[in-house]
């Protein structure tokens, strides 16, 4: 598989944009698709995925892995995900550091857990297992969250950093999610960013959010990226750039040109910002060669789940 160069811009490709995206020369360096939309047998989505792949790299972003569900990981789901990643030779695959279902039910939402060491161990073991099964880099994404559990004994950033470190896997750092959670829970988002190991960041997501009447911020992906989130993105770039940057827009999606204009702001604002060059934050050239320990296809090993 070919890694994605660090200083690149990507778009979360959604059906609303298919006509324009396929009709024009490619305007982004890579696209990301929702894995679950292409795991079924329907030929039409698969054909569109292959058309997208013919235009450039495609990374897979899942919402159904259920990494922190109480039940074991779904091996049939993982089989299908591995086949899909192989089909398009995905540079990397990501999903969320969350649970999505329990007790035989699927809630189809990205649900939080208390931040405790025993769940670090569980998430890390499972993320490492998924990465071995995929045979390619796998990353977990931080959530937007609306609740703070009394059971938590760690901060969210300690939890996320520990999972990624112990799993030896990648991180999909969503700066909008960091911002949303920081406002909802009253922490400094810079504390969060400073705790991240940017050498493990596979990509950074930016997106828009909404505000509830009581002031709670909700990760709706239905607005332009706010200035506050762009400012946080700039700080992330200064702390750990360069990294691939991808814009998500999932509701009230405007025409492709408008979305691309929002994405272009990432490039504009990065101009003039410095990036660190240190052993813990490798240069752009070094980052292209980042890989994770032994990412080879393993046979299923149920004892590891």
């Amino acid at each position: 598989m070919s890694p994605i160069p660090r200083d690149t811009l990507g778009l979360a490709l959604r059906p609303r944009h298919y006509p324009d995206f396929f009709a024009r020369p490619t305007a982004v360096d890579y696209v990301e698709v929702i894995s679950e939309n292409f795991l079924g047998p329907a030929p039409l989505p698969r054909e569109r995925l292959l058309r997208a792949r013919a235009k450039g790299p495609v990374v897979l972003h899942g919402v159904g892995l259920n990494l922190l569900g109480h039940a074991p990981l779904d091996e049939a789901y993982l089989d299908a995900l591995c086949r899909l990643a192989d089909l398009i030779d995905a540079p990397f695959v990501t999903d969320h550091l969350c649970w999505t279902g329990a007790h035989g039910l699927s809630h189809h939402d990205l649900l939080p857990v208390p931040f405790v060491p025993e769940l670090v161990a569980l998430a890390a073991e499972r993320a490492a297992y998924v990465q071995r099964r995929l045979g390619r880099p796998f990353g977990v994404e931080n959530l937007s969250s609306y609740v703070d559990f009394t059971r938590s004994t760690m901060t969210e950033w300690e939890f996320v950093a520990a999972v990624v470190r112990e799993a030896d896997c990648g991180l999909l750092l969503d700066v909008n999610n960091v911002f949303v959670s920081s406002r909802n829970h009253g922490f400094d988002p810079l504390d969060y960013l400073r705790a991240m190991d940017f050498s493990r960041v596979l990509q950074v997501h930016v997106a828009g959010h909404s505000r509830e009447p009581d002031g709670t911020l909700v990760d709706t992906h239905d607005h332009p990226v706010t200035d506050d989130v762009w400012a946080l993105y700039a700080r992330a770039w200064e702390l750990g750039g360069p990294f691939p940057t991808l814009l998500e827009w999932d509701e009230k999606i405007p025409p492709l040109d408008e979305v691309l204009a929002v994405l272009a702001r990432a490039r504009t604002m990065r101009e003039g910002l410095s990036t660190p060059r240190s052993p813990s934050n490798p240069s752009a050239e070094d980052r292209v060669r980042i890989s994770f320990t032994n990412p080879t296809h393993d046979a299923k090993n149920p004892t590891l789940r």
Partner: peptide, 26 residues
């Protein structure tokens, strides 16, 4: 009881965000 109250919303109000999201998505 598992949720801390937030400065601007009760624990139950915060849980309601997930409750509404579940139904509206479906």
């Amino acid at each position: 009881r598992e949720i801390r109250d937030a400065a601007n919303a009760s624990a139950a109000a915060r849980l309601a965000v997930y409750n509404r999201q579940y139904w509206f998505r479906l």
